[in-house]
Design a protein around this nucleic acid. Structure first.
Length: 550
RNA sequence: GCGCUCUUAGCUCAGCUGGAUAGAGCAUCUGCCUUCUAAGCAGAGGGUCGCAGGUUCGAAUCCUGCAGAGCGCGCCA
């Protein structure tokens, strides 16, 4: 229907003006939800510059030529808007007349959460987890094959410090006087230490642990933590296809190949950068391998190797992304926290240098503040105040958790208001949406026969039809922009139209779904099915099941 | 100091590929349950869209400068 309107607008324009260079996609037609009309177009204003004419004049010319069988009226309003009124009978077509969405069947890799394996998941991981999973659902909705991937950074200093912290705890508790320092604190360290001690108790009969023993122990601890993180995520309805360990990726030995390739493009040099902060007594003159990321607008060039010749995190990360690319994905998407904002430039520069046609993008999730009793709670690891995700989900429930984590645009800061979420009324949009679904179901449960009678299209009902018709545009937009909050907002708005229509029957009994004998018209029956279908699709992308009864 | 993300109603936030009186929820006030779920609906008040310039028929939206908030700024990860 929208397409027909656009085509007719274009035809009318071509009728009135010779050789104007516009295409069908240049014509914008959007839905109206008030008395002004059903659809509106600003095309005459857009063209006024090109045609060097008054927009009202262009609009008049269009109106004179414009003719479609389902359009009752087209009028000019304001500075030159074209407002289109479609006939009541054509509203029936809204339910079936869906737009054709482009089907994609690309292989997409979406990497998200990827928390350091040195502690339990907390609130900050929650947003990335849900945004990543919902984005995956959205890509699947359009027919793509999505690989959900979880990356475990199980190398580097953090792992050494983690291991040291565990052994410190064991030594302390069992009076072993082992020589280890404490870096990480918290109950979870004590817990994991106890588990490790139980598992490897025989190791502690000897005086010192060999580095093999240490490795075995820390690997066990990491596996344990990763498993419990995955368990929490599974509980939230998130299921990964791939869990990749950094140590496994590094076995590929791609790094040399990568450095050679970058070198052949003149993007590598040997030299020195400013000494690191914790520089102690390492070799001063040692030369390291450096990537010229300043060529791509980065603040400074970035090291690929450290002065002990081992690769940096950045180098390993390039390897990991090359590995993902080589696995044959058409598109790579990463979900990152705001603390990685400055890191994108260097990684993107490296990847685009290696593979100029690579499709790589990052969706950033900004900070989430936890609000309780009207106060922002400060997260502090030292005070053991870390808002463990597991506990948070238990407190607010999975549906609430999922909905609120994608309710706000991913790259803006947001407050998660625990007290609001726990309310079961209109303040909580997910209840509001679910309630509309349950109301629609109650009609279907109660109805006796479906009868073929004519119905009146009130303004409230027309708005609902138009809103349902908008679904395709919204979901397409969310897909194009990688913005999942658009789905959440659409559902809230759709539910609002439903409740408005429902209540309009208080003053106007003709607008009730059921007649005095509890029969329902075929048209409204179809509408209810469509309503449920659309809400289910939307909630489905968010990973939430509609409630039949409340 | 530099970079990134921001600044919209008392509060939490939509809207941003330029378009009609800037929207929603909460909070405040007023109505609506004898028939499908009142976990709801209708209405009222509440705004110099951070500030100042610029681009143009037209700016919350684009550009520049300034102020404020958050995050980041190692050969750490």
């Amino acid at each position: 229907m929208l397409q027909k309107i656009k085509t007719e607008l274009l035809r009318s324009l071509n009728d009135s003006y010779d050789n104007i260079d516009i295409k069908i996609d240049d014509i914008e037609v959007s839905t109206l939800f008030d008395q002004k009309g059903d659809f509106t177009s600003n095309i005459s204003m857009k063209l006024s510059k090109l045609l060097k004419t008054n927009p009202n004049l262009i609009a008049q010319n269009i109106v004179e030529k414009f003719s479609l069988n389902f359009v009752d009226k087209i009028e000019i309003a304001g500075p030159g808007f074209l407002n289109i009124f479609v006939s009541d009978s054509s509203f029936k077509d809204f339910l079936n007349n869906q737009r054709v969405l482009p089907r994609n069947d690309k292989k997409i890799n979406i990497e998200f959460v990827s928390a350091n394996p040195t502690g339990p998941l907390h609130l900050a991981h929650g947003r990335g987890a849900i945004v990543g999973d919902v984005l995956s659902n959205l890509y699947e909705y359009f027919g793509n094959k999505v690989n959900r991937e979880y990356y475990v950074n199980n190398t580097g200093n953090q792992i050494k410090e983690f291991m040291s912290s565990i052994l410190f705890s064991i030594s302390n508790k069992k009076n072993l006087s082992l020589q280890y320092n404490q870096f990480y604190k918290g109950d979870y360290i004590e817990d994991i230490a106890e588990i490790c001690y139980q598992k490897f108790s025989e190791l502690f009969n000897q005086k010192d642990l060999s580095s093999e023993d240490e490795l075995m122990l820390v690997n066990f601890a990491i596996e344990n933590l990763v498993n419990s993180s995955i368990k929490v995520l599974n509980k939230s309805g998130i299921h990964f296809n791939t869990i990749t360990y950094e140590t496994d990726v590094m076995k590929s030995n791609y790094l040399e190949e990568i450095i050679n390739s970058l070198n052949s493009k003149n993007l590598i040099y040997k030299g020195q950068l400013q000494m690191p902060k914790d520089y102690k007594d390492t070799l001063k003159d040692n030369e390291i391998t450096i990537f010229k990321s300043t060529n791509f607008g980065d603040d400074e060039d970035r090291a690929l190797t450290k002065n002990d010749k081992t690769p940096t995190y950045f180098a390993n990360d390039i390897v990991y992304h090359v590995d993902k690319h080589k696995r044959g994905f058409d598109k790579l998407i990463n979900i990152w926290g705001a603390d990685h904002l400055g890191y994108l430039k260097r990684l993107y520069s490296a990847l685009i240098s290696l593979y100029p046609s690579i499709d790589f993008s990052v969706v950033f999730c900004q900070i989430v503040n936890l609000k309780r009793d009207g106060q922002i709670q400060k997260m502090s690891k030292r005070e053991g105040n870390i808002f463990e995700l597991n506990l948070l989900i238990d407190e607010i429930g999975i549906d609430n958790f999922r909905y609120f984590m994608c309710y706000r645009k991913n790259d803006t800061h947001m407050d998660l208001d625990i007290d609001l979420i726990k309310k079961e009324n209109k303040e909580n949009p997910i209840y509001y949406i679910q309630y509309s679904y349950a109301r629609s179901q109650s009609v279907l449960d109660r109805k006796k026969d479906v009868i073929d009678t004519n119905i009146n299209f009130s303004l409230e009902l027309k708005n609902l039809y138009k809103k349902l018709y908008d679904w395709d545009i919204v979901v397409q937009n969310a897909y194009n922009k990688n913005e999942v909050h658009l789905i959440a907002h659409y559902l809230e708005s759709l539910a609002s139209f439903f409740h408005t229509f429902w209540s309009s029957s208080k003053n106007n009994p003709e607008m009730r779904f059921l007649d005095n004998d509890d029969n329902i018209s075929l048209e409204l029956h179809n509408f209810l099915l469509k309503y449920q279908e659309t809400v289910s699709k939307g909630l489905g992308i968010l990973g939430i099941k509609p409630k039949l009864k409340m």
